[in-house]
Amino acid sequence: MRYAAGLRSRLTLGIPAGLALLLLVVPLVALLTRADWARVPADLATPTVLPALRLSLLTTSTTAVLCLLLGTPLAWFLARSDHAATRWVRALLTVPLVLPPVVGGVALLMAWGRLGLIGQHLSPFGVQITFTTVAVVLAETFVAMPFYVLAVEGAMRGLDPRLESVARTLGASDLRYLRTVALPLVLPGVASGLALAWARALGEFGATLTFAGSYPGRTQTAPLAVYALLEQDPAVAISVSIVLLVVSVLVLALLRGRWLR
C-alpha cells in the first residue's frame, strides 16, 4: 500500500519533471544530430559567416569592457546604499532583463535614432548611430549590463562592512578602497558577471535587428547571420548555430566549474 502511494507520488512528480527535461533537451539534441560536423570548419570560413563571427567577437568584447568600466561603479553604489531610490534603480535595472528584445530595439531607436531623444542632437554634426557597429554595441550593452551589475552588486553586498571601516580609518579614499580591497575580493563575482553579460550580448538578436539593421561586416552579428542564412543555406546556418551552442556551453561550464561551485 505504502509502496503504491510512493510510486504514485513519484509518477506525479516524475512525469512533469521528465517532460520539462524533454522540452529543454530535445531541441538541443535535434540541432546536434542535424549538424554535419565535418563541414563545420569550411562553413565557418564562408564569406557571410567569418565577418559575422568577427563582428560578434568585437562587439561582445566591447560590451564586456563597457560593463566593467561603467557597470562596476554602478554596482558599487547600489551595494552600499539602502536608500529607497536605490531600490528603484535596482528595479529599473531589471527591466531590460525581462523586456522583449525587439521592444528594447524600439526604445533604443527612440533614444539614439536620427529623430530620437539624443540622436536628433547628433545629426547636425553628421553623426548617425543607427546602422553602425556602435549601434550593435549599444544594443548589446542595453541587454547585458543588467546581468553584470546585478551579479557584481550581489558579490559586493557579501563583503564584510568592517573592511571598509578599517580602510577608511587608514585614510583610504572610496576609489582606493574599491581598487585595492573590494575588487580583488569580488573578482569571482566580476568574472561570472562578465561571462553572463558576454553570453547575453552574444545571443542578442531582436534589439540589434530593430535598431542596428543587418549588414554584413558592419551590423550583421552571428545570430543575425544565422537568421539570414536559414533562408539561403540552412546547412551553413546549422553549422553557425552549433558554434554558438558550443560557445554558450563553454561559458556555462566555465561559470559552474570555476566560480559558481
Binding site: 531607436l109 536620427r114 543607427t130 542596428a212 539593421g213 549588414y215 539570414a228
Partner: peptide
C-alpha cells in the same frame, strides 16, 4: 550605399518611415 538589408519589404520600408534611412 547600403547600410542595412532587412528581413522583408515592410521592415525595409519602416526604416524610411522612422526617418532612419
Amino acid at each position: 550605399s547600403v547600410v542595412s538589408r532587412e528581413v522583408d519589404v515592410k521592415a525595409t520600408l519602416s526604416k524610411v518611415r522612422l526617418g532612419e534611412a
